[in-house]
Design a protein around this nucleic acid. Structure first.
Lengths: 232, 232
DNA sequence: CGACGGTTTTTGGTAGACCATAATACCCGA
DNA sequence: TCGGGTATTATGGTCTACCAAAAACCGTCG
Protein backbone atom coordinates (compact mmCIF):
# COMPACT_ATOMS: atom_id res chain seq x y z
CA UNK A 1 0.00 0.00 0.00
CA UNK A 2 2.74 2.40 0.93
CA UNK A 3 5.28 3.01 -1.76
CA UNK A 4 8.41 2.59 0.30
CA UNK A 5 11.10 3.07 -2.22
CA UNK A 6 14.01 1.59 -0.35
CA UNK A 7 13.31 -2.10 -0.19
CA UNK A 8 12.26 -4.15 2.79
CA UNK A 9 15.02 -3.52 5.27
CA UNK A 10 12.75 -1.32 7.35
CA UNK A 11 12.92 -1.95 11.05
CA UNK A 12 9.15 -2.05 11.45
CA UNK A 13 8.68 -1.92 15.15
CA UNK A 14 5.13 -3.10 15.65
CA UNK A 15 4.48 -0.60 18.40
CA UNK A 16 0.88 -1.28 19.07
CA UNK A 17 -0.54 1.62 20.89
CA UNK A 18 -2.69 1.00 23.91
CA UNK A 19 -5.70 2.17 21.99
CA UNK A 20 -5.16 -0.40 19.26
CA UNK A 21 -4.84 -3.15 21.82
CA UNK A 22 -8.03 -2.04 23.50
CA UNK A 23 -9.80 -1.79 20.17
CA UNK A 24 -8.96 -5.35 19.30
CA UNK A 25 -9.98 -6.59 22.70
CA UNK A 26 -13.38 -4.96 22.56
CA UNK A 27 -13.98 -5.90 18.97
CA UNK A 28 -13.12 -9.50 19.69
CA UNK A 29 -15.34 -9.42 22.73
CA UNK A 30 -18.25 -8.29 20.59
CA UNK A 31 -17.51 -10.68 17.75
CA UNK A 32 -17.09 -13.60 20.07
CA UNK A 33 -20.35 -12.80 21.75
CA UNK A 34 -18.88 -11.86 25.10
CA UNK A 35 -20.84 -8.66 24.71
CA UNK A 36 -24.22 -9.54 23.33
CA UNK A 37 -26.18 -7.50 20.79
CA UNK A 38 -28.18 -4.83 22.53
CA UNK A 39 -25.95 -4.86 25.58
CA UNK A 40 -24.98 -1.50 26.94
CA UNK A 41 -21.33 -0.57 26.88
CA UNK A 42 -20.84 1.72 29.84
CA UNK A 43 -17.72 3.76 29.37
CA UNK A 44 -16.49 3.67 32.92
CA UNK A 45 -17.16 -0.03 33.23
CA UNK A 46 -15.09 -0.67 30.17
CA UNK A 47 -12.35 1.49 31.64
CA UNK A 48 -12.25 -0.78 34.64
CA UNK A 49 -12.44 -3.98 32.65
CA UNK A 50 -9.76 -2.94 30.19
CA UNK A 51 -7.64 -1.11 32.68
CA UNK A 52 -7.37 2.00 30.56
CA UNK A 53 -8.62 5.53 30.79
CA UNK A 54 -11.82 6.95 29.43
CA UNK A 55 -9.94 8.71 26.68
CA UNK A 56 -9.01 5.38 25.20
CA UNK A 57 -12.38 3.81 25.71
CA UNK A 58 -14.16 6.67 24.04
CA UNK A 59 -11.93 6.52 21.01
CA UNK A 60 -12.40 2.78 20.78
CA UNK A 61 -16.15 3.09 21.00
CA UNK A 62 -16.14 5.75 18.32
CA UNK A 63 -14.09 3.53 16.09
CA UNK A 64 -16.37 0.57 16.55
CA UNK A 65 -19.28 2.85 15.90
CA UNK A 66 -17.93 3.74 12.50
CA UNK A 67 -17.40 0.04 11.87
CA UNK A 68 -21.04 -0.55 12.56
CA UNK A 69 -20.46 -2.87 15.49
CA UNK A 70 -21.68 -0.35 18.00
CA UNK A 71 -24.60 2.04 17.89
CA UNK A 72 -24.72 5.22 19.82
CA UNK A 73 -28.13 6.69 20.57
CA UNK A 74 -27.49 10.22 21.69
CA UNK A 75 -27.66 10.75 25.41
CA UNK A 76 -28.16 7.10 25.95
CA UNK A 77 -24.73 5.73 25.55
CA UNK A 78 -23.28 3.15 23.23
CA UNK A 79 -24.52 -0.40 22.90
CA UNK A 80 -23.61 -3.42 20.84
CA UNK A 81 -25.38 -3.09 17.50
CA UNK A 82 -28.32 -5.30 16.80
CA UNK A 83 -28.20 -7.16 13.54
CA UNK A 84 -31.29 -6.64 11.49
CA UNK A 85 -32.18 -9.48 9.17
CA UNK A 86 -32.58 -7.04 6.32
CA UNK A 87 -29.13 -5.67 6.97
CA UNK A 88 -27.68 -9.14 6.98
CA UNK A 89 -29.23 -9.80 3.59
CA UNK A 90 -27.81 -6.57 2.25
CA UNK A 91 -24.38 -7.42 3.54
CA UNK A 92 -24.39 -10.83 1.91
CA UNK A 93 -25.49 -9.22 -1.30
CA UNK A 94 -22.63 -6.73 -1.22
CA UNK A 95 -20.19 -9.50 -0.52
CA UNK A 96 -21.58 -11.36 -3.49
CA UNK A 97 -21.07 -8.38 -5.78
CA UNK A 98 -17.52 -7.72 -4.63
CA UNK A 99 -16.35 -11.30 -4.29
CA UNK A 100 -17.81 -12.04 -7.68
CA UNK A 101 -15.90 -9.11 -9.09
CA UNK A 102 -12.66 -10.28 -7.50
CA UNK A 103 -13.12 -13.86 -8.69
CA UNK A 104 -13.70 -12.65 -12.20
CA UNK A 105 -10.55 -10.56 -12.10
CA UNK A 106 -8.56 -13.49 -10.77
CA UNK A 107 -9.78 -15.67 -13.60
CA UNK A 108 -8.86 -13.06 -16.14
CA UNK A 109 -5.43 -12.66 -14.65
CA UNK A 110 -4.55 -16.31 -15.07
CA UNK A 111 -1.83 -16.51 -12.46
CA UNK A 112 -0.80 -20.10 -11.60
CA UNK A 113 0.67 -18.97 -8.28
CA UNK A 114 -2.65 -17.56 -7.27
CA UNK A 115 -4.44 -20.77 -8.20
CA UNK A 116 -1.96 -22.73 -6.15
CA UNK A 117 -2.50 -20.46 -3.19
CA UNK A 118 -6.25 -20.81 -3.41
CA UNK A 119 -5.93 -24.58 -3.70
CA UNK A 120 -3.80 -24.62 -0.61
CA UNK A 121 -6.24 -22.48 1.32
CA UNK A 122 -9.08 -24.70 0.25
CA UNK A 123 -7.18 -27.77 1.39
CA UNK A 124 -6.67 -26.14 4.78
CA UNK A 125 -10.35 -25.42 5.02
CA UNK A 126 -11.22 -29.03 4.26
CA UNK A 127 -8.74 -30.20 6.84
CA UNK A 128 -10.13 -27.84 9.45
CA UNK A 129 -13.63 -29.11 8.71
CA UNK A 130 -12.40 -32.66 9.08
CA UNK A 131 -10.95 -31.81 12.47
CA UNK A 132 -14.13 -29.96 13.38
CA UNK A 133 -12.00 -26.92 14.11
CA UNK A 134 -14.46 -24.18 13.28
CA UNK A 135 -12.17 -21.41 14.36
CA UNK A 136 -9.66 -22.46 11.74
CA UNK A 137 -12.37 -22.83 9.15
CA UNK A 138 -13.26 -19.20 9.58
CA UNK A 139 -9.65 -18.14 9.57
CA UNK A 140 -8.72 -20.08 6.48
CA UNK A 141 -11.82 -18.96 4.67
CA UNK A 142 -10.85 -15.40 5.40
CA UNK A 143 -7.42 -16.19 3.99
CA UNK A 144 -8.96 -17.61 0.86
CA UNK A 145 -10.88 -14.45 0.16
CA UNK A 146 -8.03 -12.23 1.16
CA UNK A 147 -5.93 -13.89 -1.51
CA UNK A 148 -8.76 -13.52 -4.00
CA UNK A 149 -8.79 -9.77 -3.47
CA UNK A 150 -5.23 -8.83 -2.72
CA UNK A 151 -3.66 -10.90 -5.46
CA UNK A 152 -5.37 -8.70 -7.99
CA UNK A 153 -4.61 -5.54 -6.02
CA UNK A 154 -8.09 -4.92 -4.70
CA UNK A 155 -7.15 -3.94 -1.17
CA UNK A 156 -9.94 -1.45 -0.84
CA UNK A 157 -12.68 -3.84 -1.87
CA UNK A 158 -11.17 -6.34 0.52
CA UNK A 159 -11.35 -3.73 3.25
CA UNK A 160 -15.02 -3.23 2.54
CA UNK A 161 -15.68 -6.94 2.63
CA UNK A 162 -13.82 -7.29 5.91
CA UNK A 163 -15.83 -4.43 7.31
CA UNK A 164 -19.07 -6.04 6.28
CA UNK A 165 -17.95 -9.40 7.55
CA UNK A 166 -17.33 -8.42 11.14
CA UNK A 167 -20.93 -7.37 11.38
CA UNK A 168 -22.22 -10.78 10.43
CA UNK A 169 -19.53 -12.74 12.17
CA UNK A 170 -21.78 -14.64 14.48
CA UNK A 171 -23.91 -15.59 11.51
CA UNK A 172 -20.84 -16.89 9.78
CA UNK A 173 -19.97 -19.11 12.67
CA UNK A 174 -23.50 -20.48 12.58
CA UNK A 175 -23.65 -21.08 8.86
CA UNK A 176 -20.45 -23.07 8.76
CA UNK A 177 -21.77 -25.40 11.42
CA UNK A 178 -24.89 -26.14 9.44
CA UNK A 179 -25.64 -29.65 8.33
CA UNK A 180 -23.82 -30.45 5.11
CA UNK A 181 -21.90 -27.20 5.05
CA UNK A 182 -18.62 -29.02 5.56
CA UNK A 183 -19.14 -30.60 2.15
CA UNK A 184 -21.09 -27.96 0.24
CA UNK A 185 -18.99 -25.01 1.30
CA UNK A 186 -15.66 -26.30 0.04
CA UNK A 187 -17.36 -27.73 -3.02
CA UNK A 188 -18.68 -24.32 -3.98
CA UNK A 189 -15.32 -22.74 -3.36
CA UNK A 190 -13.75 -25.43 -5.49
CA UNK A 191 -15.97 -24.29 -8.34
CA UNK A 192 -14.59 -20.79 -7.95
CA UNK A 193 -11.03 -22.04 -8.08
CA UNK A 194 -11.74 -24.29 -11.03
CA UNK A 195 -13.24 -21.44 -12.99
CA UNK A 196 -10.25 -19.27 -12.16
CA UNK A 197 -7.90 -22.02 -13.24
CA UNK A 198 -9.80 -22.32 -16.49
CA UNK A 199 -9.60 -18.58 -16.98
CA UNK A 200 -13.36 -18.39 -17.17
CA UNK A 201 -14.22 -15.03 -15.65
CA UNK A 202 -17.97 -15.25 -15.98
CA UNK A 203 -18.06 -18.70 -14.39
CA UNK A 204 -15.80 -17.59 -11.56
CA UNK A 205 -18.05 -14.65 -10.86
CA UNK A 206 -21.13 -16.81 -10.89
CA UNK A 207 -19.55 -19.40 -8.63
CA UNK A 208 -18.52 -16.75 -6.11
CA UNK A 209 -21.98 -15.25 -6.09
CA UNK A 210 -23.52 -18.67 -5.68
CA UNK A 211 -21.33 -19.43 -2.72
CA UNK A 212 -22.29 -16.26 -0.92
CA UNK A 213 -25.90 -16.81 -1.83
CA UNK A 214 -25.86 -20.25 -0.24
CA UNK A 215 -24.37 -18.83 2.95
CA UNK A 216 -26.95 -16.07 2.92
CA UNK A 217 -29.77 -18.56 2.59
CA UNK A 218 -28.57 -20.46 5.62
CA UNK A 219 -28.10 -17.29 7.62
CA UNK A 220 -31.57 -16.24 6.64
CA UNK A 221 -33.01 -19.47 7.90
CA UNK A 222 -31.06 -19.20 11.13
CA UNK A 223 -32.16 -15.66 11.77
CA UNK A 224 -35.78 -16.30 10.93
CA UNK A 225 -35.89 -19.29 13.20
CA UNK A 226 -34.04 -17.55 15.99
CA UNK A 227 -36.38 -14.61 16.19
CA UNK A 228 -39.68 -16.06 15.01
CA UNK A 229 -41.64 -12.94 15.83
CA UNK A 230 -40.13 -10.31 18.03
CA UNK A 231 -43.03 -8.81 19.90
CA UNK A 232 -43.68 -5.10 19.55
CA UNK B 1 -34.34 2.60 9.63
CA UNK B 2 -35.63 2.70 13.17
CA UNK B 3 -38.94 1.02 13.71
CA UNK B 4 -40.61 3.69 15.78
CA UNK B 5 -43.97 2.23 16.45
CA UNK B 6 -45.86 5.38 17.33
CA UNK B 7 -46.07 7.31 14.12
CA UNK B 8 -44.22 10.41 13.11
CA UNK B 9 -45.18 12.85 15.82
CA UNK B 10 -41.78 12.49 17.39
CA UNK B 11 -40.17 15.74 18.39
CA UNK B 12 -36.88 14.72 16.80
CA UNK B 13 -34.66 17.36 18.17
CA UNK B 14 -31.66 17.11 15.93
CA UNK B 15 -29.38 17.39 18.90
CA UNK B 16 -26.13 17.15 17.13
CA UNK B 17 -23.45 16.57 19.64
CA UNK B 18 -20.43 18.77 19.51
CA UNK B 19 -18.46 15.87 18.24
CA UNK B 20 -20.75 15.39 15.27
CA UNK B 21 -20.54 19.05 14.44
CA UNK B 22 -16.79 18.98 14.65
CA UNK B 23 -16.64 15.85 12.54
CA UNK B 24 -18.62 17.47 9.77
CA UNK B 25 -16.56 20.61 9.91
CA UNK B 26 -13.29 18.79 9.58
CA UNK B 27 -14.59 16.41 6.96
CA UNK B 28 -15.88 19.29 4.91
CA UNK B 29 -12.61 21.10 5.34
CA UNK B 30 -10.77 18.12 3.92
CA UNK B 31 -13.24 17.50 1.13
CA UNK B 32 -13.30 21.12 0.12
CA UNK B 33 -9.54 21.20 0.06
CA UNK B 34 -9.12 23.58 2.95
CA UNK B 35 -6.82 20.95 4.36
CA UNK B 36 -4.73 19.62 1.52
CA UNK B 37 -3.64 16.00 1.06
CA UNK B 38 -0.49 15.32 3.01
CA UNK B 39 -1.06 18.21 5.35
CA UNK B 40 -0.48 17.51 9.00
CA UNK B 41 -3.43 17.74 11.32
CA UNK B 42 -1.99 18.83 14.62
CA UNK B 43 -4.35 17.99 17.43
CA UNK B 44 -3.80 21.09 19.50
CA UNK B 45 -4.09 23.34 16.50
CA UNK B 46 -7.39 21.77 15.56
CA UNK B 47 -8.58 22.27 19.12
CA UNK B 48 -7.92 25.96 18.77
CA UNK B 49 -9.43 26.24 15.32
CA UNK B 50 -12.55 24.31 16.21
CA UNK B 51 -12.85 25.63 19.72
CA UNK B 52 -13.27 22.20 21.23
CA UNK B 53 -11.25 20.03 23.53
CA UNK B 54 -8.64 17.54 22.53
CA UNK B 55 -10.92 14.66 23.43
CA UNK B 56 -13.32 15.65 20.68
CA UNK B 57 -10.59 16.32 18.18
CA UNK B 58 -9.05 12.95 18.77
CA UNK B 59 -12.36 11.18 18.36
CA UNK B 60 -13.00 13.06 15.15
CA UNK B 61 -9.58 12.18 13.81
CA UNK B 62 -10.13 8.56 14.65
CA UNK B 63 -13.43 8.61 12.84
CA UNK B 64 -11.97 10.20 9.75
CA UNK B 65 -9.18 7.70 9.89
CA UNK B 66 -11.61 4.84 9.63
CA UNK B 67 -13.28 6.68 6.75
CA UNK B 68 -9.96 6.72 4.98
CA UNK B 69 -9.74 10.49 4.82
CA UNK B 70 -6.95 10.67 7.36
CA UNK B 71 -3.92 8.50 7.83
CA UNK B 72 -2.12 8.07 11.08
CA UNK B 73 1.52 7.04 10.77
CA UNK B 74 2.70 5.79 14.13
CA UNK B 75 4.82 8.26 16.01
CA UNK B 76 4.09 10.95 13.47
CA UNK B 77 0.56 12.09 14.02
CA UNK B 78 -2.37 12.29 11.67
CA UNK B 79 -2.37 13.85 8.24
CA UNK B 80 -4.82 14.22 5.40
CA UNK B 81 -4.69 11.06 3.33
CA UNK B 82 -3.03 11.14 -0.03
CA UNK B 83 -5.06 9.70 -2.86
CA UNK B 84 -3.19 7.08 -4.75
CA UNK B 85 -4.18 6.69 -8.39
CA UNK B 86 -4.52 2.96 -7.91
CA UNK B 87 -6.85 3.51 -5.00
CA UNK B 88 -8.94 5.88 -7.05
CA UNK B 89 -9.31 3.24 -9.74
CA UNK B 90 -10.34 0.68 -7.16
CA UNK B 91 -12.91 3.03 -5.73
CA UNK B 92 -14.47 3.71 -9.09
CA UNK B 93 -14.57 0.01 -9.73
CA UNK B 94 -16.39 -0.66 -6.48
CA UNK B 95 -18.84 2.09 -7.24
CA UNK B 96 -19.44 0.49 -10.60
CA UNK B 97 -20.18 -2.87 -9.04
CA UNK B 98 -22.56 -1.49 -6.44
CA UNK B 99 -24.28 1.12 -8.54
CA UNK B 100 -24.72 -1.45 -11.26
CA UNK B 101 -26.29 -3.77 -8.74
CA UNK B 102 -28.64 -1.07 -7.50
CA UNK B 103 -29.65 -0.04 -11.00
CA UNK B 104 -30.45 -3.62 -11.87
CA UNK B 105 -32.59 -3.98 -8.78
CA UNK B 106 -34.41 -0.78 -9.60
CA UNK B 107 -35.17 -2.01 -13.08
CA UNK B 108 -36.46 -5.28 -11.74
CA UNK B 109 -38.64 -3.51 -9.23
CA UNK B 110 -40.48 -1.50 -11.85
CA UNK B 111 -41.70 1.30 -9.64
CA UNK B 112 -43.06 4.28 -11.62
CA UNK B 113 -42.57 6.58 -8.63
CA UNK B 114 -38.92 5.76 -8.58
CA UNK B 115 -38.56 6.45 -12.27
CA UNK B 116 -40.27 9.78 -11.79
CA UNK B 117 -37.92 10.65 -8.97
CA UNK B 118 -34.88 9.76 -11.03
CA UNK B 119 -36.20 11.79 -13.93
CA UNK B 120 -36.66 14.74 -11.65
CA UNK B 121 -33.16 14.42 -10.25
CA UNK B 122 -31.75 14.18 -13.72
CA UNK B 123 -33.62 17.30 -14.76
CA UNK B 124 -32.14 19.12 -11.78
CA UNK B 125 -28.69 18.00 -12.79
CA UNK B 126 -29.17 19.29 -16.31
CA UNK B 127 -30.43 22.58 -14.97
CA UNK B 128 -27.47 22.90 -12.63
CA UNK B 129 -25.13 22.22 -15.51
CA UNK B 130 -26.86 24.87 -17.56
CA UNK B 131 -26.36 27.36 -14.75
CA UNK B 132 -22.79 26.23 -14.35
CA UNK B 133 -23.55 25.54 -10.71
CA UNK B 134 -21.14 22.72 -10.05
CA UNK B 135 -21.95 22.53 -6.39
CA UNK B 136 -25.54 21.71 -7.23
CA UNK B 137 -24.47 19.24 -9.87
CA UNK B 138 -22.62 17.24 -7.25
CA UNK B 139 -25.48 17.51 -4.82
CA UNK B 140 -28.15 16.45 -7.28
CA UNK B 141 -26.01 13.63 -8.58
CA UNK B 142 -25.66 12.38 -5.05
CA UNK B 143 -29.43 12.58 -4.72
CA UNK B 144 -29.86 10.58 -7.90
CA UNK B 145 -27.76 7.74 -6.61
CA UNK B 146 -29.20 7.93 -3.16
CA UNK B 147 -32.62 7.32 -4.69
CA UNK B 148 -31.22 4.48 -6.74
CA UNK B 149 -30.03 2.72 -3.61
CA UNK B 150 -32.53 3.62 -0.94
CA UNK B 151 -35.61 3.08 -3.06
CA UNK B 152 -34.73 -0.58 -3.22
CA UNK B 153 -33.73 -0.69 0.46
CA UNK B 154 -29.99 -0.87 -0.05
CA UNK B 155 -28.97 1.56 2.67
CA UNK B 156 -25.82 -0.32 3.50
CA UNK B 157 -24.53 -0.40 -0.04
CA UNK B 158 -25.37 3.28 -0.26
CA UNK B 159 -23.36 3.84 2.88
CA UNK B 160 -20.40 2.10 1.31
CA UNK B 161 -20.69 4.16 -1.85
CA UNK B 162 -20.88 7.36 0.16
CA UNK B 163 -17.82 6.29 2.09
CA UNK B 164 -15.91 5.64 -1.08
CA UNK B 165 -17.12 8.84 -2.63
CA UNK B 166 -15.78 11.20 0.00
CA UNK B 167 -12.32 9.92 -0.71
CA UNK B 168 -12.48 10.82 -4.36
CA UNK B 169 -14.48 13.96 -3.90
CA UNK B 170 -11.98 16.33 -5.38
CA UNK B 171 -11.72 14.06 -8.39
CA UNK B 172 -15.47 14.21 -8.76
CA UNK B 173 -15.44 17.96 -8.84
CA UNK B 174 -12.78 17.84 -11.53
CA UNK B 175 -14.48 15.25 -13.71
CA UNK B 176 -17.77 17.08 -13.85
CA UNK B 177 -16.00 20.18 -15.07
CA UNK B 178 -14.39 18.31 -17.92
CA UNK B 179 -15.09 19.28 -21.50
CA UNK B 180 -18.29 17.69 -22.68
CA UNK B 181 -19.18 16.24 -19.31
CA UNK B 182 -22.20 18.47 -19.05
CA UNK B 183 -23.67 16.62 -22.02
CA UNK B 184 -22.23 13.14 -21.68
CA UNK B 185 -22.84 12.76 -17.96
CA UNK B 186 -26.59 13.33 -18.03
CA UNK B 187 -26.84 11.38 -21.25
CA UNK B 188 -25.32 8.33 -19.62
CA UNK B 189 -27.54 8.71 -16.61
CA UNK B 190 -30.50 8.98 -18.92
CA UNK B 191 -29.60 5.57 -20.27
CA UNK B 192 -29.75 4.20 -16.76
CA UNK B 193 -33.18 5.67 -16.19
CA UNK B 194 -34.43 4.49 -19.56
CA UNK B 195 -33.33 0.96 -18.87
CA UNK B 196 -35.00 1.08 -15.47
CA UNK B 197 -38.18 2.40 -17.03
CA UNK B 198 -38.07 -0.42 -19.53
CA UNK B 199 -37.55 -2.91 -16.75
CA UNK B 200 -34.36 -4.10 -18.36
CA UNK B 201 -32.12 -5.06 -15.47
CA UNK B 202 -29.10 -6.10 -17.48
CA UNK B 203 -29.15 -2.90 -19.50
CA UNK B 204 -29.55 -0.77 -16.39
CA UNK B 205 -26.59 -2.48 -14.79
CA UNK B 206 -24.49 -2.00 -17.88
CA UNK B 207 -25.45 1.65 -18.19
CA UNK B 208 -24.57 2.33 -14.56
CA UNK B 209 -21.21 0.64 -14.93
CA UNK B 210 -20.53 2.55 -18.12
CA UNK B 211 -21.28 5.83 -16.43
CA UNK B 212 -18.87 5.17 -13.61
CA UNK B 213 -16.32 3.89 -16.05
CA UNK B 214 -16.48 7.13 -18.02
CA UNK B 215 -15.97 9.15 -14.86
CA UNK B 216 -13.09 6.91 -13.88
CA UNK B 217 -11.42 7.40 -17.23
CA UNK B 218 -11.55 11.16 -16.84
CA UNK B 219 -10.29 10.98 -13.29
CA UNK B 220 -7.49 8.78 -14.46
CA UNK B 221 -6.47 11.27 -17.08
CA UNK B 222 -6.63 14.11 -14.58
CA UNK B 223 -4.53 12.27 -12.03
CA UNK B 224 -1.96 11.08 -14.53
CA UNK B 225 -1.52 14.56 -15.91
CA UNK B 226 -1.43 16.14 -12.48
CA UNK B 227 1.38 13.95 -11.18
CA UNK B 228 3.34 13.10 -14.32
CA UNK B 229 6.07 11.25 -12.46
CA UNK B 230 6.36 11.62 -8.74
CA UNK B 231 10.04 11.27 -8.02
CA UNK B 232 11.19 8.52 -5.71
C1' DC C 1 -51.86 1.30 42.14
C1' DG C 2 -50.07 5.25 40.01
C1' DA C 3 -48.18 9.86 39.70
C1' DC C 4 -44.60 12.87 41.53
C1' DG C 5 -40.13 14.25 42.89
C1' DG C 6 -35.66 13.67 44.20
C1' DT C 7 -31.23 10.94 43.96
C1' DT C 8 -27.92 8.36 41.36
C1' DT C 9 -26.02 6.89 37.13
C1' DT C 10 -24.16 7.86 32.90
C1' DT C 11 -23.03 10.41 29.03
C1' DG C 12 -21.16 14.65 26.70
C1' DG C 13 -17.68 17.60 27.21
C1' DT C 14 -13.69 20.29 29.34
C1' DA C 15 -9.12 21.37 31.39
C1' DG C 16 -4.74 20.35 32.39
C1' DA C 17 -1.13 17.49 33.52
C1' DC C 18 2.45 13.95 32.62
C1' DC C 19 5.62 11.12 29.82
C1' DA C 20 7.97 9.38 25.61
C1' DT C 21 9.64 10.16 21.37
C1' DA C 22 10.89 12.52 17.03
C1' DA C 23 12.58 16.39 15.05
C1' DT C 24 15.11 20.39 15.36
C1' DA C 25 18.26 23.72 16.96
C1' DC C 26 22.40 24.55 19.04
C1' DC C 27 26.88 24.36 20.67
C1' DC C 28 31.52 22.83 21.15
C1' DG C 29 35.70 20.66 19.92
C1' DA C 30 38.81 18.98 16.22
C1' DT D 1 34.26 24.46 8.79
C1' DC D 2 32.65 20.02 9.76
C1' DG D 3 31.00 16.42 12.69
C1' DG D 4 28.79 14.88 16.48
C1' DG D 5 26.63 15.02 20.60
C1' DT D 6 23.21 17.59 23.57
C1' DA D 7 19.37 20.64 24.84
C1' DT D 8 14.95 22.11 23.37
C1' DT D 9 10.63 21.90 21.40
C1' DA D 10 6.63 19.95 19.21
C1' DT D 11 3.46 16.50 19.37
C1' DG D 12 1.10 12.42 20.28
C1' DG D 13 -0.39 9.03 23.96
C1' DT D 14 -2.39 8.64 28.30
C1' DC D 15 -4.33 9.77 32.64
C1' DT D 16 -7.10 12.17 36.24
C1' DA D 17 -10.37 15.20 37.81
C1' DC D 18 -14.20 17.92 37.12
C1' DC D 19 -18.85 19.89 35.50
C1' DA D 20 -23.52 20.01 33.33
C1' DA D 21 -27.36 17.81 31.67
C1' DA D 22 -30.06 13.91 30.35
C1' DA D 23 -31.79 9.37 31.88
C1' DA D 24 -32.78 5.93 34.87
C1' DC D 25 -33.97 4.50 39.25
C1' DC D 26 -36.49 4.54 43.45
C1' DG D 27 -39.16 5.57 47.17
C1' DT D 28 -42.95 8.10 48.94
C1' DC D 29 -47.44 9.95 49.00
C1' DG D 30 -52.12 10.50 47.31
Amino acid sequence: MISSGEGAIRVERPTKTLRELALEKVRDAIISGHFKPGERLVERDLCAQLGVSRTIVREVLRHLESEGLVTNPTNKGPMVALLDIGEARQIYEIRGALEGMAAKLCAEKGDPDLVAQLDAALASIRKAYALNDMRSVLEETTGFYEALFTRVERQIAWGVVKLMTVRINHLRSMTIKTEGRSVDGPKQMQLIVDAIRAGNGAAAERAAIDHVRAAAAIADAVLSAQVPAAES
